[in-house]
Design a protein around this nucleic acid. Structure first.
Lengths: 138, 138
DNA sequence: ATGGGTGCAAAGGATTTGCAACATT
DNA sequence: AATGTTGCAAATCCTTTGCACCCAT
């Protein structure tokens, strides 16, 4: 179990229950942009009693406290990213794959604190199109 | 009826049916980031027989041909923007409001054609936080 | 008459809610 | 005991699908 999962939780005032630790740890060790279902399936062996409701609750809580990022790039379902540093996501409209883009590939952008009086605490930059694999098979 | 609705459609090879014209026109005259339901309700008087299915079909078609932008900033439902120029959206996590941010307020960003072999045809920059109204009432 | 477009009803899928059981302080 | 957490089942909401009808070419 990744020790930083525990710290991520307590440092944000979240009680480290077994379920929350497992979910936080899952996000810190799987940078595959898992959906709620992915997390649920991925932890099923480890915690057989885990419910989807708890995954929903926990992921919402973690996102609210900025322990994880909620990614809304795919209109069909939300997914989550344990990497909270602002970075760019590419979404393939054909296969639905989400890939991280390195800093070198994208214009740098930084998070303003407020814009027109609106408090900004999160920035998401999404690129959408057709991934190289889907482009080649056509 | 806005004449440019007709042109937007034919110029992208979309047959200008009465429903499509009305929906395209709605997006070109309401920059309120309407959802499918909003468009459906908004056109109900004008076209009483309009179905939600047609709104879904048409909005998908328009987004696919880049006649409108699909905005996935709110995880609960997609909304649409008739302004296809890349610009920035702010989402209030409390009240759900979406506001456009002008160029002066945000870093300029431009659309790369490809990144790592992935074809990019759309860029979305989202800011999320608490809007000024919600911030003040707390 | 042929193909595309529309609309109804049903199905599907993701997410939320209500509530009772459980754990922890 | 009191409070917060979990999990089941049901409900809700958004979106898609299947299919029949309609319209225009």
């Amino acid at each position: 179990m990744n020790k930083s999962a525990y710290h991520k939780l307590v440092e944000r005032g979240i009680r480290p229950s077994a379920q929350r630790l497992a979910i936080m740890d899952y996000l810190l060790t799987h940078f595959t942009h898992p959906t709620v279902e992915d997390v649920y399936q991925g932890l099923h062996d480890e915690i057989p009693t885990l419910s989807r409701t708890t995954v929903y609750n926990t992921l919402h809580l973690l996102a609210e406290r900025n322990a994880v990022q909620m990614i809304t790039i795919d209109d069909r379902q939300a997914c989550y990213d344990g990497n909270t540093a602002p970075h760019v996501h590419f979404f393939c409209k054909k296969c639905g794959k989400i890939v991280d883009l390195m800093d070198e590939d994208v214009p740098t952008f930084k998070l303003p604190k407020t814009v027109h009086g609106h408090v900004v605490d999160e920035v998401q930059l999404y690129y959408k199109g057709i991934c190289s694999e889907c482009a080649n098979m056509k």
